[in-house]
C-alpha cells in the first residue's frame, strides 16, 4: 500500500504541481479532462455497449409511445411501466463498468482531496496540532513533548484532554516550506510534516498508525509505527476552495462537473454509449 501511495503521490505531484501558481481551477481542469476521457474509455470497454444501446432505444420507443398515445390511459400506463423496467435494466448494465471505475476514481478522489480539499498554511497563519494516543492510559498525555523546526512556532502549552487521550497545541507557520514537528512520547519520537505555502499544494492532514483504510485515506505520509504509542497526529489545515464566477465551490463539485462535461463531449469521438 505504501509503495502504491508513493507512486500515486509522485504522479499527482508531477501533474498538478506545475499549475500551482494559477487559480486551482486550472490544474483541476487539466486533470479532469483526461480523467473524464479515461472514465469514458473504461465505461466503453467494460460495459455491454450493444445491450445499453438496445435498452436506451427501447426507452426512447416507449417515450414516443407516450407522446403518440397520450389519450389512451391503458397504453400510457403500460409505457410508463416499460420505461421503469428498462431503466432498471440500464442501471444493471451500468453496474459492471461502475465497479471497474470505483478503484481508479477512489484513488483520484483521495489524491485530489489532499490537493484541493485543504490548502497549506500561509505564513503567519496558525493551526491546531493534535496528537492522539493509542494506549488505555489517558494520563500519558501529560508526558507528550513537541519540537518544531525553525519554520514553525508552538504558540501554546499543551491542552490536555486525558479522557480522549489527546493533547492539542496551536502552531504558527513562520516560513514557507515543508516543516517537521517531532512528537515525543515515552522515549519514542514520531515526526509530522506541516506544509506552509501561499500556493495550493498537497497537504497531509493526518498521519495515522497502520491499517488498510487509514493508509488508503491518508496517503501523504508513512504510517506511524505501531510501537510508538501514538494513534494519529493531525493538523487542522484551512479548507480549500475553488472560485468559479465569484462563487466558492467545493473541488468535488468542480471535478464531477468537468469530468461529466468531458465525458459527454468525447463520447461521440470514442463512440461510447452512455
Amino acid at each position: 500500500m505504501q509503495i502504491l501511495n508513493s507512486i500515486l503521490n509522485t504522479f499527482f505531484d508531477l501533474v498538478l504541481a506545475p499549475m500551482r501558481s494559477f487559480n486551482p481551477f486550472w490544474s483541476l481542469f487539466i486533470f479532469s479532462v483526461p480523467a473524464g476521457i479515461l472514465l469514458v474509455l473504461i465505461f466503453r470497454y467494460t460495459s455491454d455497449q450493444g445491450a445499453i444501446r438496445e435498452t436506451k432505444d427501447r426507452i426512447k420507443g416507449h417515450m414516443l409511445e407516450i407522446r403518440l398515445f397520450k389519450d389512451n390511459p391503458g397504453v400510457l400506463m403500460s409505457a410508463f411501466g416499460s420505461i421503469l423496467v428498462y431503466n432498471f435494466k440500464y442501471m444493471r448494465h451500468a453496474v459492471r463498468p461502475m465497479l471497474f471505475m470505483v478503484v481508479p476514481v477512489l484513488f483520484m478522489l483521495v489524491q485530489l482531496d489532499a490537493w484541493y480539499g485543504y490548502r497549506p498554511l500561509r505564513t503567519g497563519e496558525s493551526a491546531v496540532f493534535s496528537v492522539r494516543l493509542s494506549g488505555s492510559d489517558g494520563r500519558v498525555v501529560d508526558n507528550i513533548t513537541l519540537q518544531a523546526d525553525d519554520g514553525l512556532t508552538v504558540e501554546t502549552p499543551p491542552l490536555r484532554i486525558p479522557e480522549e487521550k489527546e493533547a492539542d497545541w496551536r502552531i504558527r507557520a513562520d516560513k514557507a516550506g515543508n516543516h517537521k514537528v517531532a512528537v515525543r512520547v515515552r522515549g519514542k519520537t514520531v515526526e509530522k510534516t506541516i506544509t506552509v505555502s501561499g500556493n495550493p499544494g498537497r497537504v497531509s492532514v493526518k498521519r495515522t498508525s497502520a491499517g488498510f483504510w487509514e493508509r488508503l485515506f491518508n496517503p501523504g505520509e508513512k504510517p506511524i509505527p505501531e510501537d510508538s504509542g501514538i494513534k494519529e497526529i493531525s493538523v487542522e489545515y484551512p479548507l480549500g476552495s475553488i472560485y468559479v464566477l465569484g462563487w466558492s465551490m467545493h473541488w468535488l463539485m468542480v471535478f464531477f462537473l468537468l469530468t461529466l462535461i468531458t465525458g459527454f463531449a468525447f463520447k461521440g469521438f470514442f463512440r461510447v454509449e452512455l
Binding site: 487559480n23 468559479v244 464566477l245 468537468l258 468531458t262 459527454f264 461521440g268
Partner: peptide, 21 residues
Amino acid sequence: NSGVAGAVLLFLISSLLIGGC
C-alpha cells in the same frame, strides 16, 4: 463529431467561468 469541438467548447466555458466574472 470527433469531440474536438467538445473540447474547445469545454475550454471556452471554463475560460468564461473563471474570467467572465
